[in-house]
Design a binder for these strands. Structure first.
Lengths: 142, 142
DNA sequence: GTATTATATGCAAATGATTTGCATCTATAC
DNA sequence: GTATAGATGCAAATCATTTGCATATAATAC
């Protein structure tokens, strides 16, 4: 049974990405996160371990990992100001966000059939889509 | 038959918004636009007529009109950097955007049933949702 | 292990959309 | 017309994100 550190190292190697301490730690945070995280969040976690790390390094790596399809970028705030990132485990999905406490529930994609129909109706080649659902969770409704 | 100027004036009055030249012109641009427009776009159109207008005025008014439910704010770029606004004619809808030429097709909402189901399954109170579909239009595919 | 070289990082500054503070102006109510 | 709450012009601030550059480091060949 492989150690997490080695698994993540291999993820990097397999994508021709050099292994650096910063990279490993960033990826680990994303891998272990239960919900999408912002660059600032990664920064605030990491600077305890790596006091010299900069936000620019975080951004460069998040973007790199997204380009390599290891992470996905998602916009979850209603106002779309800050991006979050999540480890991409191969499944296309969406999010239901509580507008009060920001809790996030992943959603299976309900548009598979719809996309096909849309493609026929509009004659567009459909590439991708994004869905975000906003609500209030049972906890916050109380 | 009422003139457009008067219709828009009444829209403003009906929402307890003072009538100013800048306001009227901004609203008119939005009303007549065939697709969502950015603040910068409004600015570049308007400064021909009102050379002294500032982007801050545009933003203040777009935001005000959105709060009053006269406009809707939409994020159409894949990278979500710039917001667009469109005149809200009462129908909840979404957009299919060509990632090459940015042409936009409005889409009827396919999630009405889904929202109800989701509400039951998750016990969240569903408030709203956003869908964006990205594709390549027939013209650009050639 | 050491040297070589391409790439990554720290750091500071830039960017770009959007917002804000403040003095002045103006639409509306009296 | 006058008073005043609210709007605008203007400049500067804000905030997430990106970039330029000198230095440091990982991968690679020896």
């Amino acid at each position: 049974m492989e150690k997490l550190e080695d698994i993540l190292k291999n993820v990097l190697k397999g994508n021709d990405i050099r292994i650096t301490r910063q990279r490993e730690e960033i990826l680990k945070i994303l891998y272990e996160a239960e919900r999408p995280v912002t660059a600032k969040k990664v920064y605030s976690i990491l600077r305890k371990k790596l006091p010299y790390i900069r936000l620019s390094t975080i951004y460069r790596n998040l973007n790199l990992l997204e380009e390599k399809d290891i992470l996905r970028k998602v916009e979850l705030n209603m106002d779309n100001r800050e991006s979050s990132f999540e480890f991409f485990r191969g499944e296309h999905h969406h999010h239901l966000v509580c507008i009060s406490c920001q809790e996030i529930i992943p959603l299976e994609c309900p548009l598979a059939e719809y996309e096909k129909r849309l493609q026929k109706e509009t004659n567009y080649t459909i590439i991708d889509h994004k869905i975000k659902v906003y609500g209030i969770c049972p906890e916050c409704r109380k």
